[in-house]
Amino acid sequence: MPTSYKVLPGPEHFLPPSAASMGIRLPDPGQAHIHGTIVTEEEAMEQAARQFLSAKVPTIFPGPLVLWAWNEKAAHKAKAVRHLYETIKESVTPSQQAMLIPMPDYRPKYPKINPEIEINPNHPNLTIWHNKIDACMFVGVHCHQANLSLKIIRGGTNCYTIAMCAQAGHEDAMLSIRDATADKILRLADWVKKLKGSVPPPA
């Protein structure tokens, strides 16, 4: 069913609807989505790179699936994530601050998390608010936790969310690439490098 709903930066409201319930569907293999509209993977890569280059605090949030070297593939992805972060860092102006903040755990942490060094899916807004993050990418976060967290971010912050998903993509992110591999992460880094200097930095 066609929908007029767009997955856009918030703050949407306290309990934003799941994008799926608003008629947003997931991309098929080889595709991606931007704001809920199906696009080619290359278009999404370019747009993601533009978001990083135009953000004040472009940030990557690696989750447990890449933080832990539980198999060789995960270790490769971790390497690619680091490379992407270093590329963003080198490609932005001194007024921008690239960050790499882990989501090591899904357990609610008491008495509180330290928002400077980690993000927790149960209250991701704390890390985003604290560091004034305006564009972020999830990678290596299990689907259920990513969905929960992406919705909270849309509800309470104005952060642009990108999901580099190893499965079928995330409709609750503003931009999602599916079937993520180390190669796709490296391709995104290539896009960042290619667009370096051509995207105006934030005012």
């Binding site: 933080l67 539980w70 971790a78 994530v81 060094i117």
Partner: peptide, 18 residues
Amino acid sequence: ERIKIAEELFDIMPPEYQ
């Protein structure tokens, strides 16, 4: 061996995991 942090991301892990 089963509980290893990815080398490239070890430095960003909070100290309790390290």
